[in-house]
């Protein structure tokens, strides 16, 4: 499988949120007005202007308090359900060189709710005018030989980026090391997505959508039909 991938080692993440801020900074996204909700997770959720968010969870596992950090972002699926739902390469398409799943301003013309609901990881967020936005893998940086802003800034090495093959090898190597001290360690959906998380506890404890929710992967009837007729609609587009 060519293209690029991320490896996010949550066991190294110290939740400094450098990635979250670097993402905002590079994309010139505005700050959000927030209130103190008793957690460092801030803002509360991803939004049209927040593509990257470090999620904080305090859980008790086997009588011990664990503070779990999950730097959430678009997984850039190998077969993106959002792209299938949109079924309009002018709105959502996959970049051939990197595998980045990219949204354009044309997402405005689609059913935003359908696109958001199709995501197994609950990532895309619509604006008021219906345009949908999410992580773009810093495609401008990557095409120019730079690392994505979040990976470049990460002080602990939790965020990694590179050619998919090398990233997969890195993830498996690191998993073997972490497994020695933590039997619950695992990689999340490594064969389906380009953003591979390594977690040390049950992934559901980190975030409800840390792994693909099975219900979301059930393709709706409308999407299935669109998929079936796709070659035909592409052909008519060209005529």
């Amino acid at each position: 499988m060519p293209g690029k991938s991320f490896f996010i080692d949550t066991t190294l993440c110290m939740a400094c949120r450098g990635c979250q801020v670097a993402c905002k900074q590079w994309h010139d996204l505005p700050a959000e007005k927030t209130v103190n909700r008793g957690t460092y997770q801030n803002p509360a959720d991803l939004s049209f202007v927040t593509y990257k968010l470090v999620r904080f969870e305090e859980v008790v596992v086997e009588g011990k308090l664990k503070w779990l950090f999950f730097p959430d972002q678009c997984r850039h699926c190998l077969e993106p359900p959002c792209q299938m739902t949109a079924d309009d390469p002018k709105a959502i398409f996959t970049d051939a060189a990197t595998g980045a799943v990219l949204y354009t301003a044309n997402t405005k013309n689609m059913d935003a709710k359908a696109v958001v609901d199709s995501c197994p990881y609950d990532i895309p967020r619509p604006s008021k005018d219906g345009t949908v936005a999410k992580c773009d893998m810093c495609i401008d940086r990557v095409e120019n030989g730079l690392l994505p802003a979040c990976v470049k800034t990460c002080p602990t090495g939790a965020m990694n980026f590179g050619n998919r093959k090398e990233i997969l090898a890195m993830a498996k190597k690191r998993l073997a090391v972490v497994k020695k001290t933590n039997r619950k360690a695992k990689l999340l959906d490594p064969d389906d997505i380009r953003v591979i998380f390594l977690v040390a506890e049950d992934p559901k404890l980190y975030h409800k959508f840390a792994v693909a929710s099975s219900t979301a992967f059930d393709i709706s009837r409308a999407v299935a039909l669109k998929r079936l007729f796709r070659p035909l609609t592409r052909l008519t587009d060209r005529l």
Partner: peptide, 16 residues
């Protein structure tokens, strides 16, 4: 763009 000829990208790929 490394991509099919037909669709139009909404944003420029030049580094800011």
């Amino acid at each position: 763009l490394g991509f099919d000829l037909s669709p139009v990208r909404s944003h420029a790929q030049m580094l800011k």
